[in-house]
């Protein structure tokens, strides 16, 4: 069987999510091709060709693909599926937007957010916000899959796949891209960060969030996250949200500050390697899953922690 991976990129460069999806694809087949559809995405295509185990890269270059619009991706990918038995996307906003549309066009039941490949038609995926895992067997001839990237290791480099140029596509007539506001930050991207510091409702204000959580994150070289309660209260922007309805992260170190540990939040971070919780309520549910719990008011604990981190050279 042959598998197509739809690359996640920002036109300028390939995103690490692609490397993870390639690993999932290799569990299905040794014939893995990567589709890079974008505008000015030549470097991303070359990077994809350099991933270990990639047979070749299909590079579709055109304005129609600059924003990953689902309708344009459908027009591109559906005909390509004549040559593939499965197509895999990262379970990101872009992947989740496009994959089901393509599945419906192929009359296929999509398999969302897989975290394990059992065999070429059997997959494990979380349901009920990760409170249960479902093992499903697909009877569709072609599989359309999105991949939970935190569950797979990144494919290495060292491949030497060829890059093949394919059509420029046609912009979808009924959809016009009007603009985007991407938050500019020097911090690592939340979804792929090795360390994450998250703040909760206990922060009490956006100012406090800014003055407590962000310096600690910067000291650790970490991405900033937040609980849904903190986001709903307006202390942090929506794309900081870690949890069932936000981002799912699995960093090496996750520091939860003033977060009680609602089920929705735990669903988004419980696969982190080491979890630290700082909360003044010793009975908070977050302590049940934290490797290291510090029962203290964050107002004193975070400055102390900053001081101790400085002592060890951070």
């Amino acid at each position: 069987m042959a598998v197509l991976v739809v690359a996640e990129h920002d036109n300028a460069s390939l995103k690490d999510a692609t490397n993870k999806v390639v690993t999932a694809a290799k569990a299905l087949s040794s014939d893995v091709d990567v589709l890079v559809a974008g505008e000015g995405a030549g470097a991303a295509a070359s990077a994809a060709a350099g991933l270990a185990g990639v047979r070749k890269v299909l590079h579709a270059e055109g304005t129609a693909f600059a924003q990953g619009i689902a309708e344009s991706m459908q027009g591109l990918i559906v005909p390509l599926m004549a040559n593939y038995d499965a197509v895999l996307f990262a379970a990101t906003a872009t992947g989740k937007n496009a994959a089901p549309r393509i599945a419906a066009a192929l009359d296929v039941s999509p398999i969302s957010d897989i975290q394990e490949v059992v065999d070429e038609k059997t997959f494990v995926r979380p349901i009920y916000a990760g409170n249960a895992l479902e093992t499903v067997e697909s009877s569709d001839a072609k599989k359309v899959i999105t991949v939970r990237t935190t569950a797979f290791a990144a494919a290495g480099v060292g491949g030497s796949g060829a890059v093949e140029s394919i059509g420029a596509g046609t912009p979808a007539a009924q959809v016009v891209f009007k603009g985007a506001e991407i938050v500019k930050s020097d911090r690592p991207e939340l979804a792929g960060a090795k360390r994450v510091v998250s703040g909760g409702r206990a922060m009490g204000s956006a100012d406090e969030f800014h003055h407590v959580i962000e310096p600690l994150a910067d000291k650790l070289g970490a991405a900033v996250g937040a609980s849904r309660a903190a986001v709903d209260a307006g202390y942090a922007p929506n794309d900081y949200q870690v949890g069932q309805t936000g981002k799912v992260v699995a960093p090496e170190l996750y520091v939860a500050v003033g977060i009680s540990g609602a089920i929705q939040h735990l669903a988004g971070m419980k696969d982190s390697k080491v979890i630290v919780a700082i909360n003044k309520d010793g009975d908070a549910p977050i302590f049940a899953i934290a490797d290291y719990g510090l029962v203290a008011d964050y107002k004193t604990a975070v400055p102390e922690l900053m001081g101790e981190l400085s002592k060890v050279g951070l």
């Binding site: 906003a93 872009t94 959809v175 016009v176 891209f177 985007a180 506001e181 991407i182 938050v183 794309d239």
Partner: peptide, 10 residues
């Protein structure tokens, strides 16, 4: 709501 920010489509 997209990864990293917001996008507006018509």
């Amino acid at each position: 709501e997209i990864d990293g920010g917001l996008q507006t489509l018509e």
